[in-house]
């Protein structure tokens, strides 16, 4: 593990090096334009000018776009939640990691570009807007990079950033000065984590109360219009053909008449709770809690608290954290002979 001290400006030369040496064909990163900061895919090293790799923005989980990646080599600069989704998709055999270099850094929370206009990515500018952070970020427990190719540390670093990698061949030809994060990095992480955990606790206890009664559950989901947006933006909901797209799950008018005639009445769109519970059981073991589903919901259903509660419930019994490590197998594809024996 090699660590180097680096300034944010110098990250551009790291990316330039990757492109010019043909290690990758393109880089997925954020770039500032006239109308704001946008995620882009850059193949021309000259166009790297003006990139803002550490802009704290999240409009959707970019891991969704990397599913079934082909043979073109890419480097992606993503938030930790996106990097975890990539690792999780790798375990689900949906991403070929041989063609992907994942670069991720410490994340102090992100904003929805819809709500916040970013003029500058300086920390002071971010601190000012703290109240407008995405809800998912205020309750995030894993804001440091998981297992990735190049990790960038900003928390507990005096002036600039620290770049850490196992794959030194990616940095070949660059003259970087070795350096490490300061000793109080762990303490600073702990401080933020405690704050987020307290917020999460509050969120989970609120939703537990709602879900515990049938009426509460109905109140929560009653405005769902089954647009399936939450499924489409979810990086972990990866099936190529969803049950709810098959003739069994996607009811046409005649099917609905048949269904209705069983009880004499059918709520339309049908199967709202069934749909959400199905997503719950399929995604909870691998949910990275990015909050993209909640933001994609046109009816403002508070999905994030539900996922926060269910993901930590399910992952904690298997002693698993989604996407943190590349090689730890998924909880539902392995077993021990002597477990859960009661």
């Amino acid at each position: 593990m090699a660590t180097y001290k680096i300034q944010e400006k110098e990250l551009q030369s790291v990316f330039e090096n990757l492109l010019k040496k043909n290690i990758v064909e393109g880089i997925m990163v954020q770039k500032k334009g006239e109308h704001g900061i946008f995620p882009v895919l850059i193949t021309d090293p000259d166009l790297l000018e003006g990139i803002t790799p550490s802009a704290p923005l999240f409009s959707f989980n970019r891991a969704v776009l990397l599913q079934n990646n082909g043979c073109r080599k890419l480097a992606v600069v993503v938030n930790p939640c996106e990097a975890r989704a990539i690792n999780e998709l790798k375990k689900l055999n949906q991403i070929d990691m041989d063609n992907l270099i994942v670069i991720s850094g410490d994340c102090l929370g992100t904003f929805d570009p819809k709500d916040v206009q970013m003029d500058s990515t300086s920390p002071e500018n971010i601190a000012e807007k703290k109240s407008e952070l995405r809800t998912a970020c205020t309750v995030c427990e894993h804001f440091t990079p998981p297992e990735v190719d190049i990790a960038i540390y900003g928390i507990g670093v005096d002036g600039g950033l620290v770049l850490s990698t196992d794959r030194e061949e990616l940095l070949e030809g660059l003259s970087l000065t070795p350096g490490e994060p300061s000793a109080n990095r762990d303490a600073e992480i702990k401080k933020i984590l405690d704050e987020h955990l307290a917020a999460k606790e509050k969120m989970v206890s609120g939703i537990s109360e709602t879900l515990s009664t049938t009426d509460g559950t109905i109140e929560l989901f009653k405005h769902c219009i089954r647009c399936d947006n939450c499924r489409d933006v979810c990086p972990i909901c990866y099936c190529k053909v969803c049950y709810f797209q098959t003739p069994l799950g996607d009811l046409k008018t005649d099917d609905m008449v048949n269904q209705a005639s069983i009880k004499g009445l059918l709520r339309i769109p049908p199967d709202i709770l069934f749909y959400h519970l199905t997503r719950n059981i399929h995604v909870a073991p691998g949910c990275v809690e990015c909050g993209a589903c909640e933001e994609a919901c046109p009816r403002d259903i508070p999905l994030l608290p539900v996922w926060k509660a269910l993901a930590s419930d399910v992952q904690s019994i298997f002693d698993y954290i989604a996407g943190m490590e590349k090689e730890v197998p998924l909880p539902l594809v392995q077993f021990k002979e002597d477990e859960f024996e009661d």
């Binding site: 879900l211 049938t214 519970l277 909870a284 019994i317 298997f318 077993f335 477990e339 859960f340």
Partner: peptide, 17 residues
Amino acid sequence: RARRRMVALDQILERYG
């Protein structure tokens, strides 16, 4: 495998009562 799946399902259904 069924046992693991059912344990995960139990966790979710517990929240929904």
